[in-house]
């Protein structure tokens, strides 16, 4: 039997604060990471649920958030029904995560190698001295000089701190790495180097990668596949070339149209919507969530929610235009 490495089925996660109406962050979301070595970029705007998805896969949703329905299976085991001890091994040994702005959450009174040693002792049976030794090896592996392993986080630049966080995520050789906007606070040059480091480690360790970002252009050269999220759903999923150069879903089309890249923008400004039209119509409660803003919307879109289906070989899209 060849089970998927990670299989998310009908996952619904909502945030229900006290005395306030609950909000659905992710709705009936299903996708799979079929094998090791599969790299997927998850693209979405703020509020699209991409970070919640990453946390959901780690089972790190905290109140007032809760997983309402669905399952997250890792190599055939549902992680949502795991015991705390099993979860502890699952996290970091099977799946690890580089959190958004993790590089600014390093403990200021701990040396960088201690951060990594702690991960190793907490999530495996290694002794303290083994952990220390391994942490030094990991740090030099991500390009941090041996002489600097006993330095503190504030003595490092942003890019170097991000390297520390990546070394931490690789500490127990997981099978899947989830990276949530790891480079959004960095300058372009350093950003490229960090993406290069992630790419190098992913192929070196044979990892699968789930890279969450709001900027589709940085996925260039990093991942093979892209999933586009809108309002808690995946609306399109395919290879990066398909998504970027021949988008199917109208939302993806709009995202790509408003993309700014060096060299290809002549005329983009004059074509940009006049401001009043650029305002956001609310997300539709019935039918397709994008139907209020969609220039192709027809009757069916207002009444029936489209499901993510394979429109062509390897091209998944949730849109009535294609799923007749």
């Amino acid at each position: 039997m060849c089970a998927d490495l990670l299989k998310v089925t009908d996952l619904t996660i909502e945030y229900a604060p006290k005395n306030r109406p609950s909000k659905t962050a992710i709705e009936k979301l299903s996708f799979a990471v079929p094998s090791s070595g599969y790299t997927l970029g998850v693209v979405g705007e703020s509020g699209s649920g991409k970070t919640t998805l990453g946390l959901g896969i780690m089972d790190l949703i905290e109140p007032p958030g809760r997983t309402v329905t669905g399952s997250v299976e890792f190599m055939g085991r549902n992680i949502l029904s795991m015991s705390p001890a099993e979860l502890r091994r699952y996290r970091w040994q099977e799946v690890s995560m580089v959190f958004q702005s993790a590089m600014n959450s390093l403990n200021p009174v701990k040396t960088v190698s201690n951060h990594i040693a702690e991960v190793i002792t907490e999530h495996s049976d290694a002794t303290k001295s083994e952990a220390k030794e391994k942490s030094i090896r990991l740090l030099s592996d991500v390009g941090i000089n041996r002489q600097r392993v006993n330095d503190y986080a504030h003595e490092f630049s942003g890019g170097m701190r991000q390297r520390v966080v990546i070394a931490m995520a690789l500490a127990l050789s997981p099978k899947l790495l989830i990276a949530d906007e790891p480079t959004s606070a960095l300058d372009v040059v350093v950003q490229e180097q960090i993406l290069g480091l992630i790419k190098e480690k992913v192929s070196e360790y044979g990892l699968s990668l789930l890279f969450i970002t709001h900027e589709i252009s940085i996925l260039d050269g990093l991942v093979d596949n892209v999933a586009v999220m809108f309002a808690g759903e995946i609306v399109e999923m395919s290879t990066i070339d398909n998504v970027v150069f021949e988008p199917l879903h109208p939302y993806t089309e709009m995202l790509i149209d408003s993309l700014l890249t060096v060299g290809s923008n002549s005329g983009k400004l004059s074509k940009a919507m006049i401001p009043t039209e650029g305002l956001r119509s609310p997300i539709a409660a019935v039918g397709c969530k994008y139907s209020n803003r969609c220039k192709y919307a027809f009757d069916r879109c207002k009444n029936e929610r489209p499901l993510l289906k394979e429109a062509e070989f390897g091209r998944w899209v949730a849109c009535h235009k294609y799923n007749k």
Partner: peptide, 13 residues
Amino acid sequence: PRLIPGHRRVLRS
């Protein structure tokens, strides 16, 4: 990043 059709950038670390 430039996103040129048929051309994926080569990332170096």
